[in-house]
């Protein structure tokens, strides 16, 4: 599925979006008004230039279009793996990008992300998971690491991991695991302008607290985190 197909399906009323160096930026018309559209395509491995292009576009939007909702399209295979990138502190540019998404929220910009193909670790952390809400298409790949690589690193038999992954969302790759654990709101069976509009309607009135732990408990995918957070908050002060 090409980016243009994605954009046409999500924004039939029109879109003006640039793609440069796998970074998407622009705007689109929806039944809820104009939205900023940004993100990455072609399984981008996020590097400094991409992170700064995204963060710069977010800052422009905050300055020039106060309150305009942000729609992130996520297709990232993670972070760029190179010495020159690490030399310049890649984690710093990703943190800067995350700070910009967070600032937009504080300044009244509702945001949502849609994983269109891949969402992997560092790339996903820096913007997709920073949005008010995240969604994924049905065939999207959401993961930290596939089970074969995980078996190699953890020295646990691949068959055992496959067996456990069938029942536990804790490490099983896939968007469904992230829904059960509260990090993805829902899986969209197909691209749909109607779904996007109703998602936008929900995020604009959403309470901005991070409630992913509560959702993880409600959906029975993350049974411990919510209670641990509560216990820390409720523990008697020294």
């Amino acid at each position: 599925m090409s980016l243009n197909d994605i954009l046409d399906s999500l924004f039939p009323a029109g879109h003006a979006v640039n793609v440069e160096n796998k970074v998407i930026s622009g705007e689109a018309t929806t039944a809820k008004g104009t939205v900023a559209v940004l993100g990455t395509t072609d399984a981008a491995a996020i590097d400094h230039a991409m992170a700064l292009a995204l963060s710069g576009f977010i800052l422009d939007t905050i300055e020039q279009h106060p309150g305009r909702p942000l729609v992130f399209l996520v297709d990232t295979s993670g972070q760029a793996l190179s010495r020159s990138q690490e030399l310049l502190c890649l984690n710093g540019s990703l943190a800067h990008l995350a700070s910009c998404v967070d600032l937009a929220r504080r300044q009244g910009h509702a945001s949502l992300s849609l994983v269109t193909a891949n969402a992997v670790s560092g790339g996903f952390l820096s913007f997709g998971l920073m949005a008010d809400r995240a969604y994924a298409l049905a065939d999207a790949q959401v993961r930290v690491m596939d089970l074969r690589a995980m078996a190699r690193v953890t020295k646990i038999a691949h068959e055992r991991l496959v067996e456990l992954a069938a029942t536990s969302p804790i490490f099983a790759p896939g968007a469904e695991s992230y829904v059960r654990m509260g990090a993805i709101e829902a899986i969209w069976p197909a691209l749909s302008a109607e779904r996007l509009v109703s998602a936008l309607e929900e995020v604009v009135i959403l309470d901005k607290q991070d409630i992913r732990q509560q959702l993880g408990l409600l959906r029975q995918g993350r049974l411990l985190a919510n209670d641990v957070v509560r216990a820390v908050l409720d523990a008697a002060a020294g």
């Binding site: 920073m130 993961r143 930290v144 995980m150 804790i170 490490f171 099983a172 993880g216």
Partner: peptide
Amino acid sequence: LHEANAGLIAISEIMRAVL
């Protein structure tokens, strides 16, 4: 990695909580 998804989501929550 033994708790990969839980760990990734927790780090996202830590990021927001720091900010």
